[in-house]
Design a protein around this nucleic acid. Structure first.
Lengths: 140, 140
DNA sequence: ATACTTATTGAAAATTGTTTTCAATAAGAA
DNA sequence: TTCTTATTGAAAACAATTTTCAATAAGTAT
C-alpha cells in the first residue's frame, strides 16, 4: 500500500500520524484524478467524518512540501493536486474526464541546448504537460 | 507600435477604446515580465490616475479572450499575464528576475506519438515551459 | 499503564483575491 | 449635437485560503 509509504514519510519528517491525515493521504493517493482541496475534503470525510477543511489544506501543504504530491496546472485552474509520481515524470491529462496519466522518456536536451545558445539562458528546469482524450472518452 | 494593434483588435471585436483600456494595453504590451492584475494596476495608473482595479481585471479578461495575452503558470502562482506572442510559442522564464523569453521550434511529434501509442490517448495539445537564469542574472 | 509535552485539531474569524452591482459617464453611431 | 448603450470606478458581495485559539490527542518519558 503506497498510502502507508506516504504516512511513513510524514512520520520520518517529524509529523504525527492522525486519523485526519490518514484520511487525506488515502484519498489523494488512490485518486487517478487531480483533486481540489474541497474535493479531497468531501471524499476524505467518508472515511473520517470529523475532518475539517482547514486540515485538508494543511495536510496538502505538507505533502507538497515533501514532494509527495504536486499541483496540477490546467486551463480551468491550478488548485488541484495529484501524486508526484516517481522520478522525473510528466502528466498527460484527459480533457474530457480529467484522468491523469504519468509518462517519462521526454528528451529535451537538443531543444534546451538550442534555446540556451540562442538566448544566453542557463536552463535549469522544464515543465511539460500533454492534453488529450483518453482511450475511453475517445470512443464516445 | 504594437499597442496600437492590440487596441485595433479590441475595437474590431466591438469593444470601445477608452483611456483606461489604453493605459492597461500599453502597460502589458511593453512589459518583458509577466504582470499580475495589481502590478498592471500600479503601473498603468502612472499613465491614467483614475484607473480602477476592476477595470484592469475586466480588460485583462478581454485580452485573454482574444488571445492577445496569456496567463503564465509559475511555482509561485498563476495569476500573471504576458503578451501571447505570435503563433505557436513557448515561454522561457528567468527564475531570478522574472524576465520572459519566447521561443518556438519545439518538435514533440516523436514523443506524442510514443505516448499516444503507449496510453491510447489522442493527444491534442502540449504545454511546455522552460525555467532558468537569463544572461544577466547568470553572471552575478 | 500513566503522565506529560507539545503538535494537531476544527470552528470561527480574518484576510486576500476576484466578481457583481449600480448609478454616473463617455464612446461612437446617427 | 443628440442619443444609445458600453464602460467606468466605488462599494458591496463573494469565494478561496489563512490565521487564531482553546481543546484534544500523538508519541515520548516515566
Amino acid at each position: 500500500m503506497s498510502a502507508e509509504i506516504w504516512l511513513e514519510q510524514l512520520h520520518e519528517n517529524g509529523y504525527r500520524l492522525t486519523d485526519a491525515r490518514r484520511a487525506v493521504v488515502e484519498t489523494v493517493e488512490k485518486s487517478t484524478h487531480a483533486l481540489t482541496p474541497v474535493q479531497v475534503y468531501d471524499l476524505a470525510r467518508k472515511k473520517y467524518r470529523a475532518l475539517g477543511l482547514v486540515t485538508v489544506y494543511r495536510t496538502l501543504e505538507k505533502l507538497e512540501e515533501l514532494h509527495i504530491i504536486q499541483r496540477v496546472h490546467q486551463p480551468q485552474g491550478c488548485q488541484a493536486f495529484i501524486s508526484a509520481g516517481a522520478g522525473h515524470q510528466h502528466l498527460l491529462l484527459c480533457q474530457s474526464c480529467g484522468q491523469v496519466e504519468f509518462f517519462d522518456g521526454d528528451d529535451l536536451d537538443g531543444l534546451t541546448k538550442t534555446i540556451s545558445k540562442k538566448t544566453g539562458y542557463k536552463i535549469n528546469e522544464h515543465w511539460l504537460q500533454l492534453f488529450g482524450l483518453c482511450a475511453a472518452c475517445r470512443t464516445n
